[in-house]
């Protein structure tokens, strides 16, 4: 599904990713862990197509096509979803309009009929239950005045609506209490299927208790320095990041 080969990325002349290699097959969940500043969010943003990053070499193949050639919106419509670390507020734009536009852009792109307002509202209610979203939130402007937890739930809610093939969760667990964490994990797990994959970026092992990964990668100073099964997260939790740092001096 996704194949990252020898990816080098710079921001304003500073090299952040230094040769990333990663294979994600359909149905797999990959966790990417690492200390602050190791390049986790950069990787997530590059995959989603954020502009400020300069790809100096390497390639990313998604569903047999060159991903890096595509616009962010086309990537989205081809099934890549980024759950933002810091969801953005858009004052004056109601959630409902925003989401209906998003869903219908996806449908148009994929040759499906656009949903009417009625059909969309029905779909929205269904998905809202899934992540325990308060119905009032959808009448508010996009993320405006949402609490930290509400913003993160809102990301998962949007993911549920858009049903991506590849979901990238960028520190979706940060700032969540245990109940919200469970809700978010439940939303993610409900989407798991043999066709769908996920990349879960996180600092802590905690989220991985609920979203059990097939692989855990440790990113350090722009490189993946260790890859193993879910037990690696536990080992990391126990030994701390100093363990990685000392091994990679």
């Amino acid at each position: 599904m996704l194949s990252i080969k020898n990816l080098y990325v710079s921001v304003e002349g500073m090299e952040i990713l230094k040769g990333i290699n990663l294979e994600v097959k359909p149905g797999e969940v990959h966790a990417i862990m690492g200390p602050n500043g190791s390049g986790k969010s950069t990787l997530a943003n590059v995959l989603a197509g954020k502009e400020e990053y300069e790809i100096t070499s390497g390639e990313v193949i998604y569903e047999n096509e060159d991903l890096l050639d595509k616009s962010p919106e086309d990537r989205a419509k081809e099934g890549i979803f980024l759950s933002f670390q810091y969801p953005v507020e858009i004052p004056g734009v109601p959630m409902v309009n925003f989401l209906k536009t998003a869903v219908n852009e996806h449908r148009k792109y994929n040759g499906l009929k656009e949903l009417t307002a009625g059909e969309f509202l029905k779909l929205m209610r269904e998905k809202m239950d899934m992540v325990d979203m308060h119905p009032n939130l959808t009448n508010r402007s996009v993320n405006e005045g949402f609490s930290g937890g509400e913003k993160k739930k809102n990301e998962i809610f949007q993911m549920a609506l858009l049903e991506p093939k590849l979901a990238i969760l960028d520190e979706t667990d940060s700032g969540l209490d245990i109940d919200a964490l469970k809700t978010v994990a439940h939303g993610v797990n409900a989407l798991r299927s043999p066709e769908r994959s996920a990349i879960v970026v996180t600092h802590y092992q905690r989220l991985l208790d609920y979203i059990v990964p097939d692989f855990v990668h440790i990113l350090y100073k722009g490189k993946i320095v260790k890859t193993a099964g879910k037990e690696l997260a536990l080992e990391l939790e126990e030994k701390g990041y100093d363990w990685i740092k000392s091994e990679n001096l």
Binding site: E51, P72, A76, F84, I90, A102, E105, H106, V142
Partner: peptide, 9 residues
């Protein structure tokens, strides 16, 4: 970018 990522040009 947030809108783009949701498929909105």
């Amino acid at each position: 970018f947030y809108c783009n990522q949701r498929g909105i040009d």
